[in-house]
Design a protein around this nucleic acid. Sequence first.
RNA 1: GGAUCCGUAGCUCAGCUGGUUAGAGCGUUGCAUUGACAUUGCAGAGGUCAGUGGUUCGAGUCCACUCGGAUCCACCA
Length: 743
Amino acid sequence: MVQYAYSGKSMDKIYDHRKIERNIYKIWEKNGYFISRINRKKKPFSIILPPPNANAPLHFGHAMYVVEDILIRFHRMKGDPTLWLPGADHAGFETQFVFEKKLEKEGKSRFDFDRGTLYKMILNYVLENKKGMQNQLRRLGFSLDWSRNKFTLDEDIVKIVHKTFKKMYDDGLIYRGERLVNYCTHCGTSFSDLEINHKEQKDPLYFIKYGPLTLATVRPETKFGDTAIAVNPKDKRYKAFIGKEIEFETLLGRKKMKVIADETIDPDFGTGVAKVTPAHDMKDFDMGKRHNLEIVKVIDLEGRLTDVAGPYKGMRIKDARKKVVEDMEKKGLLEKVDNDYVHTIEACYKCGTTIEPMLLPQWFVKMEPLAKPAIEAIEKKKIKFYPKRHEKNILWFLKNIKDWNISRQIVWGIRIPAWFCLGCHPERSEGSRDSSAAPQNDKNRKWIITEGEKPDKCLECGSKEIRQDEDTFDTWFSSSQWPFATLRVSPYKGDYEYFYPTTVMETGYDILKWWVARMVMVGLYITSKIPFENVILHGLVNDPLGKKMSKSRGNIVDPLELVDQYGADAVRFALIFGTALGNDQSLSYPKLQAARNFTNKLWNMARFINMKRETLNSKFEIRNNLAMKQLNNLAKNENDRKMIIKTEKLIEGVTKALENYNFNYAAETLYDFSWHEFADKYIEDVKNRIDENSYLILNTLYLILLKLLYPMMPFVTEEIYQRLNPPAGGGESIMIQNWPLSD
RNA sequence: GGAUCCGUAGCUCAGCUGGUUAGAGCGUUGCAUUGACAUUGCAGAGGUCAGUGGUUCGAGUCCACUCGGAUCCACCA
């Protein structure tokens, strides 16, 4: 048993967390208190920590993990076999983005390195960050089971991800889609629909003559990819043109094009005529499918115009647009320009570049078959949501689910275990990352999907010239498997069988769709069980002015700064005090101060009790776990009796609150009771009439109070507990005491 | 256009399934203090719970609408 260094010494007038917190955490860890143990006679309580991104230090929002620590510490005291499994996420695209920014500052770019080198550089960077992050989690006092720590790129996790992909492929859930994907020409990768932002923007709307017709567009530079002209079938103005081919003058000479009728065309927009560019517009792509139109690519992966643009080839989108407009004006093809046109465009959520819909072969997951069981599980309340309102949100998402593009054109991540044979289909590509070499069309490829290992030879032609797909998985693809993956590869036997499904998944509501929904779907698919029973969604922590914290705004607050200043207990308490679960909050310095003052108040209450023991020279052996009834029998004074009853009620209230995830209620009740009931009234009363008997009651009730507060403020309660609960010099930790009972 | 959340004391927010004089933190006013704690104590001021209408014996709490603020989703070339 490791001893508590400060126990037994005299108590300072003011509680100083700096002298205490680090040491206590070390002792807890050394004593192995965080390590989970299976007890098949009891029902477990388990939480998998949402693995923070290992590409940057934790920000203040991560401190909300305190909600999980409270639950874990609460259940551990209640005697439930408890597991809190930590981990870190490689955060594929996010990390590569951060790393490339770093390279940029050094005057380099990802193209200066080959795939292997770049990967290793990022890996080193991430592993370094991961250490710092784990230290931060410790400083916040989180009682994580570090012996089960996992990383999304651990070999055994990667193996599971590969297996999942293979199984999905074998089950027909994976398809190679040559479809329009959201592509950022700056970041050089595609995104899922969730990863793009919509933003309002003012752009000129050009009215262009197409022979007898005039149509409006904001993207004249894509006109080289037009393969039809569309009108609404009900539009009387253009009825005569439908189905006919018209001929007209363009920048590249005379052209013929068919006029088609499509319901999706709004007669009230512009002239009621639209150009159809299937290769570069989602709606046009669908229209093209309906009408069997040719697909002509105008823009390449770097955002430059292709061969079809003739003299405009190689120009960037912006420049090309300018030049095209100029030339059309000269040629008299431009009728007019509406400069006040406001519309919404899609932008890369990371760099803000306008997203180009690009026709790219990518791996997609068919989501409907996966969503169905998830919807059922939620509707049948097998998975419950706190606050409840999020249930609606996730159901809406699941019922309107779209197929998931899981290919990312980055090196940092889990490479997709898909292989193709060069013997059957020779390709020019030599596997470099630049876009000119990237396959624009691989329709005829025969793919071999494995669980990660390279196939010996092609099954068709026997060639050994086999190459792996360059792409990596969307990070969320691996994250979606996190609950069962971590438990299945646990170094402790039986973890998966015992702890899965986990009891609680606690995370920010902002990743409900990205992560929670996908965990439910993939979890159900692979394990046939829900991954967790309860979903708790906390709100966001904004800056003191209520603005979202972000790197670009520069208003990120390092949690450790505040831990240094106010103490981990105060930071933890401030986060749950005065904000209902699930609501956003703004970082509040007055609240942090109030919470710190509260730790000091607790400390001084203890100091008083300690002093009284000395003056009384009490021979009482403090009986720590005295039942309330026994205590009541000892009570001779009316006020003592009343206090015992009040404490019983407090135990009931706090226990119920924690069981119902009413953290703020628990915190507020304890704050109010400790300060304004216990200190202001009870201690003041007992002060003048204290004897050995009432002293025993005072001390015992106070220890109960400490235990109730402990899940929220583990450090100060542990330190005080050591001092008030003999044998002095280091008794048992408060951490392994039983949760107080009200009878 | 669809959906969600919020609008309670000067500020930041609690108020669990509707039930006695609506709470906290910070701020504010007055007083106290070498005796656990000034990171303190006592006392006080401050709210037509956004507005209107409804359900109910009774609504900050439920319903409808209006106004104001925020977020998410989906979109017109």
